[in-house]
Simulated assay, not measured.
Amino acid sequence: MLERQFNGSRIREGRIYRGLTITDLAKELDISKQMISKYENNRAIPTFEALLQISKILNFPKEYFYENSIEVRTGNTYFRSLLTTGKKEREMQYDRVKYLTIIRALLEEYVDFPELDVPDFSERDIENVEDIAERLRDYWGLSDKPIKDIVYLLETKGFVISSLNLERKSIDAFGSQQEVNGKHYYSIVLGNNKRSFYRRQFDVAHELGHKVLHDPYLNLDDLTKDEFKQIEQEANDFAAAFLLPRESFLRDVSIHSNDLMYYKTLKKKWCVSIGAMVMRAYKLGAISDGTYQYMQRSISQKGWRTKEPLDDIKDIREPVSMKQAVELLIENNYITGDDFMYKLSKHYGLSLFREEVEELLGLEKGYLETESEPQKNNIVSIKDRLNSKSKID
């Protein structure tokens, strides 16, 4: 019988995933930080009892610490509001995107998803963010009409999207480019802390901006604070231009551009927050500097920076692509929950608890406990299901 080899780097990976420092884990285990470092660098192997403790503290199966996942080339992870997201907060999310993409690769053995469909814009083109947004709209056939559900739109364009309850409230969304088995993916994780459909629209468009505008392998740690700000501003400008196309939005907003209450009506049509529309109107010259400052003060006085009118009325849109894929496979007996977890472990080197996968995919708790006889070597297409999904205004 072959003896499995302990992989110390998985302790570090799991520790960071859970947001723990070496000091935190050492304290939990009542051992020295030096010993934790030795474990992580394969200079020492924990006893079976110690490994069980580590497994419990980090909430990963013990098999997780004996594996190497399939090779994933991961680009830089872009976060919504980079300047307010600390390094530790960012690091603990990196592998969530990677694990999500590995699960997508597994699902693609059974399910025919839409291919990632984003045109490549040259470095010279990126200087004009407004033009890039218009060209992407044209490429996707969106004309100049409002985007009623950008989460749905990006799923039909092949993006990997998940929605999670993130412990760090400063994180609204993050995304990065991944490469698995030579295939490129772009994965976006949305935070569920701020339950506003309209704010989520902008968050997703912001992450799309990073995909379209910025180098996926740029090392953000090498950037200055001003360069950080520039990257974020470019993504914000793209999001505004993509969601609120210049000519058609100007026609609407110019009717009563100085009336803050009029923006409530525009919010219903354009599916974008009032704050974002006021900013867009100002940058397009529809309102003066003085009016803009007055409207910003009014927004603050009304408490709209945290909660705007209509936020409680429209339900937030959740990603459905991968969730529906798993449901199709299990409910039609193509694979069982046990088979799915086994294959993720044995074929992709990623042992996770069911609860973790259910959360990553937005499945109901306990869903992957489904047991039925699988039918092998079947392909299920959800392209048609996505493309025929009725959009709810």
Rank of each mutant, 00 (worst) to 15 (best):
S9Q: 14
T23P: 00
L25D: 02
L25Q: 02
L29A: 06
D30I: 11
M35A: 10
S37F: 10
K38P: 04
Y39E: 03
R73M: 13
T74V: 11
Y78Q: 10
K87N: 14
K98T: 14
Y99H: 13
T101Q: 04
I103V: 14
E109F: 08
D112I: 11
F113D: 03
D120Q: 13
R124C: 08
D131H: 12
D131M: 15
A133F: 06
L136S: 00
R137L: 02
R137K: 02
G141M: 07
I147Y: 03
K148S: 07
S163D: 09
N165C: 04
K169F: 11
S170Q: 14
I171P: 05
D172P: 00
F174N: 11
E179I: 15
V180A: 08
N181K: 13
N181M: 09
H184N: 14
H184C: 09
V189A: 09
L190W: 00
N193V: 06
K194C: 07
R195N: 14
F197R: 08
Y198D: 04
R199H: 11
D203R: 11
H206M: 06
K211Y: 12
P216W: 11
L218T: 08
N219G: 01
L220V: 10
D222P: 00
T224W: 09
K225E: 15
I231V: 15
L243A: 08
L244W: 04
R246K: 14
E247R: 15
S254F: 04
I255P: 01
S257V: 07
D259G: 09
Y263D: 04
Y263L: 05
T265P: 00
L266K: 05
S273K: 02
A276F: 06
V278L: 10
I287N: 01
Y294Q: 12
S300W: 11
G303T: 00
E308I: 06
P309F: 03
L310H: 10
D315G: 06
R317L: 03
R317K: 14
E327W: 00
E327Q: 07
E331V: 00
K346E: 15
Y348N: 05
G349R: 08
L352V: 02
V357L: 03
E358F: 03
E359H: 10
G366C: 04
L368T: 08
E369S: 14
E371G: 05
E373Y: 13
I382M: 01
K383V: 10
N387T: 05
K389S: 04
I392T: 10
